[in-house]
């Protein structure tokens, strides 16, 4: 790693926009994939319309854009294990956890058992999670 070796900060990527209408979701994902190589403590937050980034069954054939939704399911391979979705944002939009893709990672400390990396959290918990961060990037 160039510079900053040994420093571990808590990085949080907050996503509040739906995919495809603007490029923010895709380019946020590109940052996260690069960030994974820096050995920092990474959390992803999806709130407001950002929850739509994680929906199952996205099909972009009809709009001529690349469907990047499968990349979220690969986040576990990048050692990204903390993906938080605001419960109230889902409910306000008539969605539930079942509408979202399953995100998993393999726990190397537990014989590579497959574990959930997506957590639906209530507003009060999310406030605490965001407040603990050192660096917050918003998309």
């Amino acid at each position: 790693m160039e510079n900053g070796e040994g420093v571990v900060k808590k990085f949080c990527y907050i996503n509040r926009k739906a995919p495809y209408g603007t490029i923010y979701a895709l380019e946020s994902l590109e940052v996260v994939l690069i960030a994974a190589a820096f050995d920092q403590d990474i959390s992803l937050v999806f709130a407001d319309d950002g929850v739509y980034q994680l929906t199952k069954g996205q099909d972009t054939d009809g709009i001529g854009m690349k469907n990047f939704s499968k990349t979220y399911t690969a986040l576990g391979d990048y050692d990204i294990k903390k993906v938080y979705v605001e419960k109230e944002s889902l409910e306000e939009r008539g969605l539930s956890a079942e509408d979202l893709q399953a995100l998993k990672y393999e726990d190397e400390d537990d014989d590579w058992a497959e574990k959930d990396s997506l957590f639906v959290v209530g507003r009060e918990d999310l406030v605490k999670i965001i407040d603990e961060q050192d660096v917050v990037l918003s998309f």
Partner: peptide, 20 residues
Amino acid sequence: SGLGQLIEAGIQADRLVTFG
């Protein structure tokens, strides 16, 4: 340069301020 420069700025800087 690459996106790593953004992460490095987040690590090195005392404050990261975003305008968008």
